[in-house]
Computed example of a mutant assay.
Amino acid sequence: MTATIDFRLIRQLWMFLAVAEESHFGRAAKRLGISQPPLTEQIKVLEKALNLTLFERSRRGTVLSPAGAAILPAVRQFAGQVERLEQVVREVAAGQSGVLRIGAINAAMLETVPSILTRLKERHPKLTVYIQEIDSAEAVPALEAGNLDLAFARIEGEVGPAIATLPLTEDRLAVALPADHALAALPRVRLQSLADEPLVMSSRKVSPVYFDMLTAVCRSHGFAPRILHEVRSVVSQIAYVGCGQGVALVPASMSKLAPGNVVVRPIKERIMVVTAALAWNRNRYHPVIETVLGQLTRGLHTP
């Protein structure tokens, strides 16, 4: 079964997006480098093809109809994918040797990814790298679907037969506290002393393995954590602590992100947590990732 690409539809969707963002046919036409009459005609053709009214026109200007507003997010996503495709094609045509799509959690983008990318660029100067921020829970589905080639996330243990993982960095568990908290004066804080404290935790939806590990550690020290907030990143945890919304278990290296009203103290018990692991789909062939992964694993801990 074969299919053909409807380039006319792609062009009409670009036009729809321009009118939606400009809220004015004249400005949209100028942005697209065409005159207004053909733009208006093409939008009418698109509306007829979709059997939808996409815009409502009034004295106040052009506004999206409910149907137009409903399809706008998908059209924006599609336009972004087309732009990425065009960029990849241009770079390949210009002699680039490969493209690598990387997803990374916020903490890994701050701590782990920059130095690894430096090494990759030294070994593969023509490699084009695209990075997007992800949650740990998004890593495996994105790798399985082929939307990412590599993921840097908090991943431990078995995550599926197709996904391979390699722990990259670990750090000592610490607690972020308001600077005026009684425990902030201590050089180290016993985990059990947090039993009655409201906790700001990294959401289980974001990183289920990390969440379950921290919960299990608390229970092994005699208490069930009192979780007041679940947030999406370590940066958010520290921000919530700074706003007086509790205390947070974070990697000790995150002390560099703490503002003046937050202190980070190591947990007295030596508890190590994986802050980033590398994950990839071993069942998906990628001509670049095979070489990159081999060099990365060999040189990962080389000074």
Rank of each mutant, 00 (worst) to 15 (best):
Glu138His: 12
Glu91Ser: 01
Arg282Gly: 00
Ala185Trp: 01
Val92Lys: 12
Val263Cys: 04
Ser136Glu: 08
Ala195Met: 02
Asp212Ala: 06
Ile105Cys: 06
Leu228Lys: 11
Val241Trp: 05
Gln192Phe: 09
Met254Pro: 03
Asn261Pro: 07
Glu86His: 05
Ala3Leu: 13
Ala104Thr: 07
Phe7Asn: 01
Arg76Lys: 14
Val45Gly: 00
Ala94Met: 08
Ala93Phe: 09
Leu214Pro: 02
Ala174Lys: 04
Ala195Glu: 02
Arg154Leu: 02
Leu293Thr: 09
Gly33Ser: 04
Arg188Trp: 04
Glu144His: 03
Leu186Lys: 14
Val113Tyr: 06
Phe25Ala: 07
Ala145Trp: 11
Arg27Ile: 06
Val63Gly: 00
Val241Ile: 05
Leu173Met: 00
Gly242Val: 05
Val82His: 04
Ala74Arg: 10
Arg190Phe: 07
His124Trp: 14
Gly146Thr: 10
Glu111Val: 15
Ala151Met: 07
Gly61Arg: 07
Ser202Gly: 14
Thr291Gly: 14
Gln42Glu: 14
Arg8Lys: 03
Ser253Cys: 10
Ser207Trp: 01
Glu111Met: 13
Val189Met: 08
Ser58Gln: 08
Ala162Ile: 03
Thr169Ile: 11
Arg190His: 06
Thr297Arg: 00
Leu85Arg: 02
Val288Trp: 01
Gln12His: 11
Pro167Asn: 02
Met201Gln: 01
Ser58Asp: 11
Ala108Val: 10
Val88Thr: 14
Gly222Arg: 03
Pro198Phe: 00
Arg27Tyr: 04
Leu39Val: 11
Val189Leu: 12
Lys126Val: 09
Leu110Asn: 10
Gln96Asn: 12
Gln295Phe: 00
Leu13Lys: 01
Arg154Gln: 06
Pro259Ile: 14
Pro125Ile: 09
Ile116Pro: 00
Ala29Pro: 12
Ala162Asn: 05
His24Ala: 15
Arg188Lys: 13
Val129Tyr: 01
Tyr130Lys: 12
Tyr130Cys: 03
Ala104His: 01
Tyr130Gly: 08
Gly244Asn: 10
Pro251Gly: 02
Ala164Arg: 15
Val247Trp: 10
